[in-house]
Design a binder for these strands. Structure first.
Lengths: 79, 79
DNA sequence: ATTAAACAGCGGGGGCAACGCTATAAATTC
DNA sequence: GAATTTATAGCGTTGCCCCCGCTGTTTAAT
């Protein structure tokens, strides 16, 4: 029996937004602008903006990059 | 100054493989075949095989699906 | 009040990798 | 050796992400 799809989809949406907020929060805590962090991670600045605003679902490769540059351990899903 | 790219890339590759192993480990621990899990997650069975063998980098959306169906909290990156 | 500079949001075209789908072979278990 | 499970390959589609550009907001200096 499949997990309830409606619930799953909303959890996915919720987590995407939560992750964006968390990235922004940690970035600001570290004192980085989007541009500074983008340079450190060697990715595009507008991409960071879109990620922080939950515009799309990033790959784990990129989440690892954030984790390294921000020195922060992300949890999927936080319980 | 950008983070050392060589190191970053190897960490990304390492994590991709570690994540695949972890997914397989938890799946077997739960007693699911790849097909059973694929049905639960409403994704393709061959995709699960490829992910467990680190053939590509999954999106966070999919990691959330795994987390829900396996009832397991993934950490990026584990410290 | 005006200007400049720093920062962030967002739209859109384009390339390519993620993922679906199907089939086949290989491995594992009985 | 049959049945089940898994690996892998090829091809098509979708969407992540790059890259460029413009806008809006804020702050500071003049």
């Amino acid at each position: 029996m499949p997990t309830d799809i409606t619930s799953t989809e909303s959890q996915i949406r919720d987590y995407r937004l939560k992750l964006g907020d968390k990235i922004r929060q940690v970035r600001e805590q570290r004192g980085y602008s989007q541009e500074q962090l983008a340079d450190m991670m060697d990715i595009n600045r507008s991409t960071i903006s879109k990620i922080e605003n939950g515009k799309f679902s990033i790959t784990v490769d990129y989440l690892v990059r954030f984790s390294i540059s921000l020195d922060y351990e992300f949890k999927v899903i936080e319980r």
